[in-house]
Every structure is written in structure tokens, then in C-alpha cells.
Nucleic acid binder design. Structure first.
Lengths: 231, 231
DNA sequence: CGTCCTGAGTTGGAATACAGTTGCTGTACG
DNA sequence: CGTACAGCAACTGTATTCCAACTCAGGACG
């Protein structure tokens, strides 16, 4: 988190929504560390907009749980406790199977095509050991699956959960990727056959094994510990 | 949804957060009907603030799912489909037991005191047939329970879910209230004894029976039907 | 009857101004 | 040397004004 500009206006005018995604990405990717202060003016400069869209973006991010604010003290990147991080995994373990079951009942042919394409890509890449693209592919797969559930609110929840989890946790064993894409294939097949129950069971198992390969990215800060300096 | 002012500045300056809650309440209580247009200027007048805080409030409400917006076409009250409404009930049925289980493990004595007080009040009121206060008491009870879970994000999710459900659904039988407060008492006892498993089971049963007494407040609009006039 | 165009009205954003808070800093005092 | 407090700078929260971009409804036109 150095000084001033970085991503500034890459041509067209950036909207509040764009700024929101940009800040979120900068948080998830670690450019802004948990606890970092997010001054409005500073963000405005960084993204080349005025304070208005920045403030709107911060409100959204606050309600999503990525930043926390105190009156007149501004916004800062949230610092999820270890407890809370664990709960996120449990919430996902409950909701993802529901979402997939709904997707099995409501998916369109279009969703199916995208899912199959992603599975094919993912299996290829994981067989060839090209691990770098896999996190993104995994994200798209589950995102598509979530949207296929037909409930905007459920989909939004799942996507948000997943983002937060990938922010807090790192995936351990690259060896899991191949198994994961096998499972993705099986889930897609069940969804294609409208077999909600099978899809649900497969997803529960998938998430369970997947979760075991997660590890916290950082040690949560102990309230009394020495605060390290930030610029 | 009549003309202009209504709730205007009741004394002190209203902040964006206050405006947000005010609009949400006006939506949940039916002052703004699903599909109603929410013009910024109009809202600004109604709550006695400028457009800036109104816009921030609308962003928050959008991310919460109470309003939907389209670029340059403004915000309007969301119109959840019947499908989505059903999914909300299912999501709650999954998350509420988890929240209560966590509450059983993490609740403080203070939480416990509040819960016991609310149970006592609720049981009194429901025995005497004073049904008018019961919805609010029920809301507080579950809200306190959610906060006792120790996870801000889980608590926020539960509270938001509950609000949305009470917006979309009406509770049918007033006869359920007495049974409900019996169940609330049992849940509180389990939470007090740190018995997470029992608390979870009791909550699952509670939610299940409770859900059966729900009914949609309005018939979701059929996309092709004749649009009724507004304003 | 359908299509295109136009204009009023609203939103999205910028720039500016200002009051109220926060939180740091430096200083006086124990 | 440590602490408490006053003062100050920085920032937030809101208001206000202005403008471009866009939507939408209604009328002109083919």
C-alpha cells in the first residue's frame, strides 16, 4: 500500500459499482491488508473519481462485510476473527448444497453449456499441471452454478461467501485440484439430469473434502500485540 | 405512497444510516410497495436530507436486496419471486440452527439475561392474548440470539433474512404464538446450559413448525399481466 | 400501424463548502 | 519520567450547485 496513484482511470469514466469491485479486488488480493485505513480522498485519487462514488462503494462493501466503519473515523479493511472465518466455512457448507440442488431443478441449457465448458477446461488444465488458471476457473464454475440456482439472493450470498473465503483462506494441496475437477464433472452431470438429491450429496462431499485443504492466510491479530507500522 | 413529506426531520440531523433504516422500515411496513419507484429527490424531501445520504442508503439497500436499480433509471422496491421467497425460508431453516448452536457455545451472561427477559415477557403476553407486541418481541428474541452467536457476519445474515421474510410473509395463526414462546423458552434453556446440539435440534423444529404458519403477503406479479397504475 | 426522433425529467458524478469528530501532538504539570 | 489535557490538523458527513449521460414517454413521420 504505497503512496498515491496506481490503477487510475484506464480510459473511460469509472462508476461507483466499478470502484466497488476495484476496492474489493484490492482487498481480496491483499493490496489493502486487514486493518488498513481506507481514506476516502486517497481512494478517490487511486481510482480517479470523486468522493461521491467512493463513499457509495464503501457503503456497499460495509454491508458485504469487507470493510468496517466508525462514525467520523472512516473505513478500514475488516479483520475477521478466526472464529468468524470458521463460521464462514460452515455457512458455505450448508448453503452450497442447497444452491446446487436448486440449480439441478432450475438450470437452463445455457447454464449447462457453460458448466460443461468450464469442467472440460478445468480437467485439461489440472491434468497438464497448469495450476495457475485453476483458482479462477474454480471461481467461475461455482459462480455459474450459483446463478443457475435461479435465486438472485441465494446466488449473491454464495458468490459473496466464496469471495470472502478465498480472501481469508489459502488452498493448500495442489494435488486436490484434479480430484476437485472430477467432482465438478460429477456434479455437473447430476445437475444436467435434474437429479437434485444426488447433486446435493455430491456437493456436500465436495465441499467437505475441499474445506479440509484450506488454511488461514494469516494469523489473526491478537488485540494486545504490538501494532506494526503502516504507511 | 402519497405525495411528498411525511416523516420529515423529527428534530436532529438524520444520517445516511438512519435514512437507510427508515427506507427499509418503510419498505418492510408496506409504505413503499414492491415495484414502487424510489426517486432520490422525493426520498430526500421525505426524510429531510440531501441526495447524498439518500444515494448511500440506496446502495446499502440494494446490496441487501430490498431495492433494485438500473443505471440512469433509478431505484425501485424489489419484487421477490415466489421461488425466491421460498428459498429464503429454506436458507433460514439451514442457518438459524447453526446460529443458535454457536450461541449456545459462545453466549455471554448478558445475552442470557436479555433472552430470559424476553421469554418471560413473550410468555406473559401470549398467555394474556396481547398479540400486538408479539411480532416485535419475536424479532428481538431472534435478533439477540443471532448476536449471541458471536459471528458478526452470521448474525447480520440472520437478522437480514428475518427482516426480508417478515416483509414477504405474514404469520397466519395467532394460536402458534403460545407454542412459539414455549419453544423459545426451551431454546433459551439449552443455550444457557451450553447444550449446542439440543439447541440446534429445538431450533430446527421451531423453525419448521413456524414456517408452516407462514403465508405470502401478496400474489407475485405475473410478468405478462396488466401493469397497474402507480402514483 | 410501426418506427424514429425529440425533449423533459432523473440519475451519476464532480467540485466546493462547511460543521462536527476524531485522534495525534506537544506542552504543562505532578 | 510519565501523565493528563488543551489545541490543532485531518477527515468524515452532509449540503449545494452544476453538468453530462441516460431513460422514457409521447408525438411526428413514413
Amino acid at each position: 500500500m504505497n503512496g498515491v496513484d496506481g490503477v487510475v482511470n484506464a480510459g473511460r469514466r469509472l462508476s461507483a459499482q466499478t470502484v466497488c469491485s476495484a476496492i474489493r479486488d484490492d482487498i481480496v488480493n491483499g493490496y489493502f491488508a486487514p486493518g488498513d485505513r481506507l481514506a476516502e480522498e486517497q481512494l478517490a485519487k487511486r481510482y480517479g473519481v470523486s468522493r461521491v462514488p467512493v463513499r457509495e462503494a464503501l457503503r456497499t462493501l460495509e454491508s458485504e462485510g469487507f470493510v468496517s466503519t466508525r462514525k467520523h473515523a472512516g473505513a478500514s479493511v475488516a479483520e475477521p476473527s478466526e472464529q468468524e472465518a470458521g463460521d464462514l466455512l460452515e455457512i458455505r457448507a450448508l448453503l452450497e448444497p442447497l444452491g446446487v440442488a436448486r440449480a439441478a431443478e432450475r438450470r437452463t441449457e445455457q447454464h449447462l453449456r457453460v458448466l460443461r465448458g468450464l469442467v472440460k477446461l478445468g480437467q485439461e488444465r489440472s491434468e497438464k499441471g497448469q495450476f495457475s488458471d485453476l483458482p479462477a476457473l474454480d471461481g467461475w464454475f461455482h459462480q455459474t452454478l450459483a446463478r443457475a440456482s435461479g435465486s438472485p439472493s441465494l446466488a449473491a450470498l454464495l458468490i459473496q461467501l466464496r469471495q470472502k473465503i478465498s480472501w481469508i483462506y489459502a488452498v493448500e494441496s495442489p494435488g486436490r485440484w484434479m480430484a476437485a475437477w472430477e467432482e465438478h464433472g460429477a456434479i455437473t452431470d447430476a445437475v444436467a439430469r435434474n437429479d437434485a438429491e444426488r447433486a446435493r450429496r455430491l456437493t456436500t462431499a465436495h465441499i467437505e473434502r475441499w474445506t479440509a485443504a484450506h488454511r488461514l492466510r494469516r494469523v489473526p491479530r491478537i488485540p494486545g500485540a504490538t501494532e506494526r507500522e503502516r504507511v
